[in-house]
Design a protein around this nucleic acid. Structure first.
Lengths: 210, 210
DNA sequence: ACCTGAACACCGTTCAAGT
DNA sequence: ACCTGAACACCGTTCAAGT
């Protein structure tokens, strides 16, 4: 076939196919050959659009982070409410694509959407009266919490098998085998509880600064 | 060579070598052939001791989690102080081996040390008077925060290059290029700030239960 | 510029063969 | 039981060749 008159691929098409594959079958399913096959081309074709597979995954990660709503840092919302709304949007964006989170959580690097996110939360906190050092730590701790919550379900981390929890070894885990079936309620409840606690705790620190 | 009179390998030796390799060169450096070479044997030999590479990594993850101190849940420490001490030990254990965290954060599964940890924190919170549902959420949210903080440095996620942060695009990131060189202070400060906020926020919820 | 097949140096895992 | 080499079906990436 060689070069077609109209390109078969584009960065956008490749990223979309890669994200679909990550979501359906996990990060390890994304091989250059497999991804190329989904797109109807041969493996090396991808290297006309991305220099390495890592650069491709960077682009995938950035489209996920680009979904996070940042408007609350510029529309006059008070800082504590802004953090809550932002954290929910941030978690929703990441939890929709959990298999890319380990990759994405390595930091923004040079990814534009990651940097915009860091810029927005830092700027929002500074404008709300937090000293820069505190603003940095708030951005960091929120990323810890959100990335950790999207990285893997707490509830689904337990096996769905009562015999896995010997009462002699684990006296308090008698109900743990029920966690997987309540996955969404447990994980969202824990996220909301933690988010509430984090923001309440920050409010105490904010008062001390006055 | 075939079978030696005394086994060349053991699960313990394999796990120790794998952990060293993960720490020095990252998870992707741990291939069966490479690991076997470090141990002076051929690749397939590992399959006499572990059924799959994943089972081997499970064992590596479990030795890391086994380092976490759980004594504060049984020595009469009050719940809030116990959570703080536990979280610090938990984070220290994971942050010492950051490359295994994405694997480990998928949940305890059937790993004994992971289950002991879940059992201890849940039992500790229930014994302190938290209702079981709250105790579950506390365990989950602490895992989110600790795993997220150990998964990747916040500070090192930024590139060490002033020109990477165009003021037109990122008006508040003028100092971001300095973050990597203060990595430890920034990350530990953010962890301590977040931990304080989480526990203070939980204390408010605890009061409401009375 | 953008695709191809061939090639290189790797993977995880299975298996028959050796002691 | 526990090691080996050979083999299978994969990897990421490079590169010369094609239009």
């Amino acid at each position: 076939m060689a070069r077609p008159r109209k390109p078969l691929l584009s960065r956008e098409r490749i990223v979309a196919a890669a994200l679909a594959l990550v979501d359906e079958e996990g990060l390890q399913a994304v091989s250059t050959r497999r991804l190329a096959a989904e797109l109807g081309v041969s493996g090396p074709s991808l290297y006309n659009h991305f220099r390495t597979k890592d650069e491709l995954l960077d682009a995938v990660a950035d489209t996920v982070v680009a979904q996070v709503d940042l408007s609350m840092f510029e529309d006059g919302t008070r800082w504590a409410d802004a953090l809550v709304r932002w954290a929910r949007s941030y978690r929703a964006a990441l939890a929709a694509h959990p298999h890319i989170v380990p990759f994405l959580a390595q930091g923004p690097g040079r990814r534009p959407a990651g940097l915009r996110l860091a810029d927005a939360v830092f700027g929002g906190m500074v404008n709300a009266g937090w000293p820069p050092g505190h603003a940095t730590r708030i951005g960091a701790m929120m990323r810890y919490f959100v990335a950790g919550s999207a990285l893997g379900s707490f509830a689904r981390g337990f096996v769905d098998d009562p015999t896995a929890y010997d009462p002699d070894d684990y006296p308090h885990l008698g109900q743990a085998h029920l966690l997987p079936e309540h996955q969404q309620r447990v994980d969202e409840g824990a996220f909301e509880t933690g988010l509430r606690a984090l923001v309440d705790g920050l409010a105490i620190q904010y008062e001390r600064l006055r």
